[in-house]
């Protein structure tokens, strides 16, 4: 469903994404991992048709990413979601369903269903300007799902959500994937990726370092520790975990052991 082939994106002299290959199939939940500035958001913006690649191909359901057909198939939750301050949450959802041409009766039922799923009944008819970050995030999730997308792309999905909302969102991701939707999720939270994802891809400096199931990565890289250690060793930021130096004196911010008596 999502097909990224040899994609490079340059910002002037800087190469943000470097010959990246990525595929997310129907019914699959793919977690896109990488340190800050690794090129995750740039890749996601190319998948959503907001940026054009300097070279390479991005296809959504076989369509060019910038085409109207691709946008009809896609639901997108950006890292900094946008809502109209002077619309109520319900009006925003009605705008989205109208934009995607949903039949009115079906659209109303779907909106009510999502209001219940995301527990938004108490505030859905208030102006979005009065919403907290978490409330906004829930409306944006609902708007991305309200037209039953075949592909869901989510950048940092759990930012600003309380544990209950986070649980709802995580369940929804799995449910979407099981119902045949291709879900691409970019996250820093390795535990979430380990818990939910069918496959993970680790990207750094714009290049895909490794991709596959967590077990495949462990076996290929001969690394049997937690995903966090695997990630850190791949991205070159490895530092000894606190537990490994416990009792051996202080460490500095880079994780290097310091002589006893060094002030922290």
């Amino acid at each position: 469903m999502i097909e990224v082939r040899g994609v490079t994106k340059r910002f002037g002299a800087r190469c943000a994404v470097d010959r990246l290959d990525l595929e997310v199939r129907s019914g699959e939940l793919f977690a896109f991992l990488g340190p800050n500035g690794a090129g995750k958001t740039t890749t996601i913006k190319m998948i959503c048709g907001l940026l054009s690649p300097s070279s390479g191909v991005v296809r959504i359901g076989g369509n060019e990413a910038t085409s109207q057909a691709a946008r009809q198939l896609l639901g997108y939750v950006p890292d900094q979601p946008y809502l109209y301050d002077k619309l109520t949450g319900r009006e925003f959802l009605r705008f989205v369903v109208e934009m995607y041409g949903l039949e009115p009766g079906r659209a109303s039922r779907r909106i009510l269903e999502l209001i219940d799923v995301f527990e938004m009944r108490d505030y859905i008819d208030e102006l979005c300007e009065s919403y907290s970050q978490g409330m906004k995030q829930r409306v944006v999730f609902a708007s991305a799902l309200v037209h039953d997308p075949k592909i869901l792309v989510v950048d940092e999905p759990l930012v600003g959500l309380d544990p209950r909302s986070a649980r709802i969102v995580k369940d929804l991701f799995v449910q979407q994937a099981r119902s045949g939707c291709a879900v691409l999720m970019s996250t820093h939270l390795l535990a979430i990726a380990e818990e939910l994802a069918d496959r993970v891809g680790i990207v750094d400096h714009g290049r895909m370092l490794a991709s596959g199931t967590v077990d495949q990565l462990r076996s290929e890289l001969k690394h049997h520790g937690p995903l966090e250690d695997l990630f850190l060793s791949l991205t070159g930021d490895h530092r000894p975990p606190m537990s490994s130096v416990e009792g051996q004196g202080p460490i500095d911010l880079a994780g290097r052991p310091q002589p006893a008596g060094t002030p922290l």
Binding site: C48, G49, L50, Q68, R71, P78, Y84, V96, M99, G101
Partner: peptide
């Protein structure tokens, strides 16, 4: 808003 509208059909 422009970025948001560009992701719609």
């Amino acid at each position: 808003e422009g970025a948001f509208l560009l992701t719609t059909p």
